[in-house]
Lab assay of single mutants.
Amino acid sequence: EPLWIRPDAPSRCTWQLGRPASESPHHHTAPAKSPKILPDILKKIGDTPMVRINKIGKKFGLKCELLAKCEFFNAGGSVKDRISLRMIEDAERDGTLKPGDTIIEPTSGNTGIGLALAAAVRGYRCIIVMPEKMSSEKVDVLRALGAEIVRTPTNARFDSPESHVGVAWRLKNEIPNSHILDQYRNASNPLAHYDTTADEILQQCDGKLDMLVASVGTGGTITGIARKLKEKCPGCRIIGVDPEGSILAEPEELNQTEQTTYEVEGIGYDFIPTVLDRTVVDKWFKSNDEEAFTFARMLIAQEGLLCGGSAGSTVAVAVKAAQELQEGQRCVVILPDSVRNYMTKFLSDRWMLQKGFLKEEDLTEKKPWWWHLRVQELGLSAPLTVLPTITCGHTIEILREKGFDQAPVVDEAGVILGMVTLGNMLSSLLAGKVQPSDQVGKVIYKQFKQIRLTDTLGRLSHILEMDHFALVVHEQIQYHSTGKSSQRQMVFGVVTAIDLLNFVAAQERDQK
């Protein structure tokens, strides 16, 4: 057995438009009618409502009807409940999964919650491996369901041993009777949507819809739904939504950006999952974080739909894509998950301010006199920076000697690579993860907040409520011999709460 199987392995699926269902090699399930009293909570997966979006479509000038398939009504709160249950049931049916076995899954959280929910009911041990950027709410729900959680670096490539995929496979090879159901490759993922989600949409719309818009992560949702719609409703256009920084969209030119990270969760990847059939997507749109969270908040405030950030991405694209539809036509959007997962993220004004998705003037509360002053007023001194090749031991000596707790790590040209902190280095040394002679590049981390000289002290204040420091950066445009230009970030300084307090105190003292 291989040590790991690539999540982007070539698909062996034989589905073709027009091929009889009787030739399918898979076990198919028909939607079942729910009894009045459910035998367990797993029976509350599927049969989610279709809700008309009344205000947002009109606000953006849509002539067509805009409908939302509300997947956050599933038992675990997301569309991923469907595939989690289906993968477990299919693994039980073919004898792969037996009582007492362990389920391991690399996930952005929602599939993990679905699997942990099913594992709690069915009696399996469950280990979820997820990147650090995923919300604390997801972690809390997983723990409450009895799952064990392993976190991995957000910026690790999918084929790196440190990625959530790599760590999951390492655990599988170490733990007896453990299984990775593997949402990236498992046919049960798109089949769950082909058999149930798509049929529900067709039934709820009486077979009449002209466009379907869905955000894409593993691709199982859009693949399964689109294949069924292509068979039953061939005139329906399928629109895929991919965040900026991901590479799922086609044509490839759409993916060209210097951005590699994004805040919206559960969609987009740096590889093409095996289950994603991009041939059934008629057109791709890219979405960005700001519009995703703005539209998610709009869905909550104006439509009462308590959905997550990827739902915002989907609707932001839908109001663009559906401009081509006329009166009497219908566009369906998939709202994948609930706001429950993001209470401390985009639902929080403070978080939105820190990330730059909300401006101070958007909030009406009274601010102190210094709130709208610029960061450049602080008069920061030149920063202490270190090269990635310097040793951890030497870096600790320098920081202690100069009285700093942290320093930016830059390359020879001064471009920011990340940050090192005294606390992080000492804990890594004590844990045996690094040696004093190791290069400081081994303990770089990139989960820090950046701020510009033109940003306000109010925004800085919000950042420092949650973080010990902020890195002050400025952009530099560099022209190359080819005539092309590129933008790079340079370090201007490091600012802490002490710097802000000293500035405010000094100004008030001078005024007296």
Rank of each mutant, 00 (worst) to 15 (best):
T344W: 04
E508S: 11
T274F: 00
M352A: 03
T482I: 10
V440K: 03
A318Y: 00
K320P: 03
V504G: 10
F293E: 00
I272Y: 06
Y269K: 03
T314G: 15
D289K: 01
R459C: 10
T395V: 11
C307W: 06
N424Y: 08
D349N: 15
T391G: 02
G393D: 12
G356C: 06
E360V: 12
F448R: 07
Q487S: 13
E252C: 03
V275I: 09
K449G: 06
H462P: 06
I396V: 12
V281C: 09
E258V: 11
T344M: 06
E250I: 10
Q489H: 15
D289P: 00
Y342V: 01
T261D: 06
G414S: 15
L464N: 07
Q326E: 13
I390F: 05
S437F: 15
T260Y: 15
Y342T: 01
I272G: 05
G308R: 00
T454S: 04
Q256Y: 12
G403S: 13
L460T: 08
E397M: 13
E265W: 01
L453V: 15
E244G: 07
A321H: 12
G304T: 03
G240P: 00
L464T: 08
Y479H: 03
M343E: 02
F404L: 15
Q376F: 07
C331W: 05
L358C: 07
L457G: 01
N502W: 08
M490I: 13
E290C: 11
Q450P: 03
F357H: 08
G240H: 02
Y262F: 13
I300P: 05
V280C: 09
N502R: 13
T421K: 10
T421C: 05
N255P: 08
D405M: 06
D277S: 08
G268F: 00
E361N: 10
Q478R: 15
G458M: 07
M466S: 14
W371V: 09
T391W: 03
T421E: 08
A505N: 08
M425C: 10
K442T: 13
T257V: 13
N341T: 01
C331H: 00
L460R: 05
L325G: 05
D405H: 09
L501P: 01
P436H: 15
Q302A: 03
E475C: 14
R330L: 02
V440A: 12
D277L: 05
P383V: 07
R452H: 15
V415R: 09
P383R: 06
Q439G: 09
K512G: 09
L305Q: 01
H468K: 09
A311D: 10
C331M: 06
F357Q: 04
I390L: 13
T456N: 14
G423P: 06
L299G: 04
P251R: 05
Q376M: 11
L460S: 07
Q447L: 14
P388C: 07
V409K: 01
A413F: 15
L358N: 10
I238Q: 00
Y262T: 08
R340C: 03
M466R: 11
M298N: 09
H474F: 09
L500R: 04
R350Q: 14
E465G: 14
K367G: 14
A318F: 01
V281N: 03
F492V: 15
E253N: 14
I247S: 08
E263L: 10
R488W: 15
V281I: 04
T389L: 11
Q376L: 12
S310Q: 03
K442L: 15
P383Q: 08
M466N: 03
S348A: 11
E475T: 03
E252R: 12
V473L: 15
S428K: 04
T260E: 14
P436N: 01
Q435V: 13
V375Y: 05
E327G: 06
E360H: 03
H468E: 06
T274L: 06
L363D: 15
A322W: 00
S310N: 06
L457D: 00
V504D: 10
G493S: 14
W351L: 03
D277K: 06
P383A: 07
V415D: 14
Y262C: 05
L422M: 11
L353F: 12
E324I: 14
W369L: 08
G245Y: 01
S313Y: 01
S348Y: 04
E361G: 13
V434K: 10
K286A: 04
S246N: 05
Q259W: 07
L378R: 01
S287P: 06
E360K: 15
K286L: 00
N424K: 13
T496I: 14
N288I: 15
G356P: 04
T456M: 14
R278F: 03
E250V: 14
V264A: 07
H480G: 03
Y269G: 01
A407I: 13
L325D: 01
G418T: 09
H372V: 15
V409W: 00
E412H: 11
V375F: 09
T385G: 13
I390R: 03
A296C: 08
K367R: 15
K367Y: 10
P368W: 08
E401D: 15
V472W: 10
L460H: 05
I272R: 09
Q489K: 11
A470I: 03
E360M: 10
G403V: 12
G309L: 00
D270C: 05
L460A: 07
E258I: 14
K433L: 14
D277C: 07
D242Y: 00
T260S: 15
M425G: 09
E475R: 09
G432R: 11
L363G: 12
V495T: 14
V491A: 14
S338Y: 02
Q302K: 05
N341E: 03
L276C: 06
H480K: 09
G309P: 03
A316C: 05
A301R: 10
I463H: 07
D510P: 10
F346I: 13
F357K: 05
V494W: 01
D242M: 00
D362H: 11
L399A: 12
Q376T: 12
G266W: 01
T261G: 11
D289L: 00
D411T: 14
G458K: 07
G356H: 08
T395G: 11
E397Q: 15
E253L: 08
Q406H: 09
R374T: 11
A301D: 15
L500P: 15
L325N: 01
Q256A: 15
E401I: 11
E252H: 02
L501D: 04
P243D: 07
V241R: 00
R340E: 06
E265I: 00
F271W: 02
E250Y: 14
R374P: 10
L305T: 00
E397P: 01
R278L: 04
F448C: 15
A505T: 13
T454L: 07
G418S: 14
I334M: 11
V264W: 00
D455I: 15
C307T: 09
L380F: 03
V333D: 06
V332H: 00
T344Y: 06
K446V: 15
P273N: 07
R330P: 07
I300T: 07
D405E: 10
D282N: 14
G493R: 12
E265G: 01
A316L: 14
A431Y: 08
A407P: 10
P273I: 06
D438S: 13
L417P: 13
H462N: 08
T364H: 10
H394M: 09
T294E: 11
L426D: 04
V473T: 15
F492M: 14
D455M: 11
M419G: 09
T314A: 12
L453A: 07
L325M: 08
T421W: 03
L325W: 00
Q450N: 11
S461H: 08
I451T: 07
G432M: 05
G309R: 00
